[in-house]
Simulated assay, not measured.
Amino acid sequence: MDARKALLIDAYRCFNGRDVEGLLSMMTDDVEWPDVPNQDVLRSKNEIREYWRGQFAVSDPQAVPTDFEPGRGEDDLVAVVEHEVRDLSGGVLVQRRETRHRYFFRDGLVRRMVVE
């Protein structure tokens, strides 16, 4: 679990620093990622790249892992995350709240993420 936990801590650091390419390097080529606002699943790094670029152009989301919980199987891990979204001038769009992100791994990389 330690290597996966370290990878996710780095991933959240990249997310909060808007390092999209750094984030994508931590994912498999066939990654699946949730598009929560549109209730859809993104199925490639290119789709995720465009999703995040669009999101970061209009908002300032921040996500900080506060804990990690074992998954249901050997290939998953749950990150407990404090999440908040502000507009670009600092106004709160989504109040700080706790969320759970379940990650599935393959070959040391993120294969899929689900928001619970």
Rank of each mutant, 00 (worst) to 15 (best):
M27H: 03
E116L: 09
V80R: 13
Y51S: 11
A11C: 01
A11G: 04
S44D: 03
D75G: 06
V58S: 05
D2G: 00
M1K: 12
W52H: 15
H101M: 09
S59H: 04
G73E: 15
Q39C: 01
D30E: 14
E50D: 13
L88K: 10
G90P: 05
G54M: 05
D30S: 14
L7W: 00
D10E: 09
Y12C: 07
D107Y: 01
E21P: 09
T28V: 08
T99R: 15
W33L: 01
M113H: 06
V81R: 14
C14T: 05
S59L: 01
G17H: 06
S59E: 09
F105L: 06
A57M: 01
Q55N: 12
N38R: 04
A63T: 01
V41C: 07
M113I: 08
R97E: 15
A3G: 12
L23I: 07
T28Q: 12
L77Q: 12
E50F: 02
V110R: 04
P34K: 06
V115H: 11
P70C: 04
K45M: 02
L93I: 14
N38V: 00
D35T: 03
E84M: 09
L7G: 02
K45Y: 00
V115D: 13
P37R: 12
M113K: 11
L8H: 04
V114Q: 13
N46I: 00
V64P: 02
A3K: 14
D107K: 08
T99M: 13
R102D: 14
L24T: 03
S89K: 04
R102L: 13
A57E: 11
P34M: 05
C14Q: 08
Q95R: 14
P37W: 05
N16V: 04
G108S: 08
E74G: 06
L8G: 03
L42R: 03
R86V: 13
R96Q: 15
R53Y: 04
D10Y: 00
D76S: 08
W52M: 11
D40A: 07
D29E: 11
R43Q: 15
G73R: 14
G91K: 06
Q39D: 11
R102S: 13
S59T: 10
L77P: 07
D87I: 09
V92A: 12
L24A: 07
R111K: 13
V110F: 00
L8K: 10
R96G: 15
F68Y: 12
Q62E: 09
S44I: 00
G17Y: 02
L109M: 11
V36W: 05
R53P: 01
R13P: 05
G54A: 05
R86T: 14
F68N: 05
Y103K: 10
L77E: 12
R112L: 05
F104C: 10
D76T: 11
G91W: 00
N38L: 00
D75T: 05
V31F: 01
V64D: 09
P37V: 08
T99F: 10
R72S: 09
P61M: 01
D40P: 00
Q39M: 04
N46G: 04
D30V: 00
M113S: 05
V31E: 09
R111D: 08
A63S: 10
E32R: 12
R112V: 02
E82G: 04
G71E: 14
L23F: 06
